[in-house]
Design a protein around this nucleic acid. Structure first.
Length: 301
DNA sequence: CGAGTTTGACCCGCGC
DNA sequence: GCGCGGGTCAAACTCG
């Protein structure tokens, strides 16, 4: 490794939080470490099993989903400024126990807003040079021998590139559905080949072709969100039931409606969030997601 | 034969 | 301007 590479690695390490379970794959870091630790309280990688997110995830995972019209979601990760309606009536009333406490959400959202402001200020100078608009991204880590996680959508490979300092290539996939521009890529961690980092980009313009089953496997999941200048990580704590999927989108939208808030809003940008259906399908798939908060930091945005 | 994969070439942005 | 790396294209190939 030459000096340049060493320096890059050093820089990366400065922004990196390690868990007791894995190292961060090359090229990934945690831009919002403070947010993760302070705001949500459930990001403690050393004691993951002791944390749950009863309000949010009970709701998410017990609330049915519907494929949302693409127009509902911003194509650009910057478009997350819809009016705030955290108490929106769109939230399903069928899971009242799981609905987040109003105060909790208000508090969370406020903190996120504050953090987002800081982030925005930090990123401001860089925005000048921003030319290419990046679509909403959504990344997560899985521990699996299976490279290509089956998320219910049909994908077509369109490229493969070697990853610097890694023996494993990065694979590029596109949704096979016509007029759907969603892409995803995945690569194995050079540090731990059993770890696969998958990144989704874009918004599906069609429903998931494979409909869900009812049960989510028991798992602890960390989902990584990229876009909107912030990152949040979530842990799906346990097996939950998905009967249908009508309200997921509304619920997410309700979170996203705070100005510049990066938490839950980022969810809104991920209509391709691995649906209950896909999560619930087979072993070696998304249920293998690892508990680790990580996000590929958008350097230029 | 159509759908999906492979893989080298190409494009583009960025840093030096 | 040049080199590098990430991302995409597209022809050739494979598979069912």
């Amino acid at each position: 490794m030459d000096k340049k590479e060493e320096q890059k690695t050093d820089n990366l390490m400065e922004n990196t939080t390690f868990s007791n379970q894995m190292n961060i794959p090359a090229g990934f870091s945690t831009p919002c470490e403070a947010d993760e630790k302070e705001d949500l309280g459930f990001i403690d990688m050393l004691n993951l099993q002791e944390y749950t997110i009863p309000s949010m995830f009970d709701f998410l995972l017990t609330t049915p989903l519907i494929p949302s019209p693409a127009s509902t979601y911003p194509e650009s990760s910057e478009v997350v400024n819809a009016p705030a309606t955290p108490n929106s009536s769109s939230i399903s009333s069928s899971s009242t126990e799981a609905v987040p406490n109003d105060n909790q959400w208000t508090e969370t959202v406020e903190k996120e807003e504050q953090n987002q402001e800081k982030i925005n200020k930090q990123l401001e100078p860089k925005k000048k040079n921003q030319k290419r608009q990046r679509k909403a991204r959504f990344a997560f880590i899985t521990k699996s021998e299976v490279d290509h996680l089956d998320d219910g959508y049909k994908w077509r490979k369109y490229g493969q590139k070697p990853v610097k300092n890694s023996p494993f290539p990065r694979n590029y996939y596109r949704c096979t559905s016509k007029a759907c521009v969603v892409k995803k890529r995945f690569e194995r961690s050079s540090d731990d080949p059993s770890i696969v980092v998958t990144t989704y980009e874009g918004t599906h313009t069609h429903p998931c072709p494979i409909m869900h089953r009812g049960i989510l496997p028991e798992t602890t999941t960390t989902t990584l969100f990229e876009g909107g200048g912030g990152a949040s990580s979530f842990i799906i704590p346990r097996v939950l039931h998905y009967p249908q999927q009508p309200y997921f989108h509304n619920y997410l939208t309700s979170f996203s409606n705070t100005n510049n808030s990066s938490f839950p809003p980022l969810l809104q940008e991920t209509p391709f969030w691995p649906s209950a259906s896909s999560l619930a399908r087979d072993h070696g798939l998304l249920q293998d997601m690892l508990p680790f908060p990580m996000i590929k930091e958008p350097k230029e945005e």
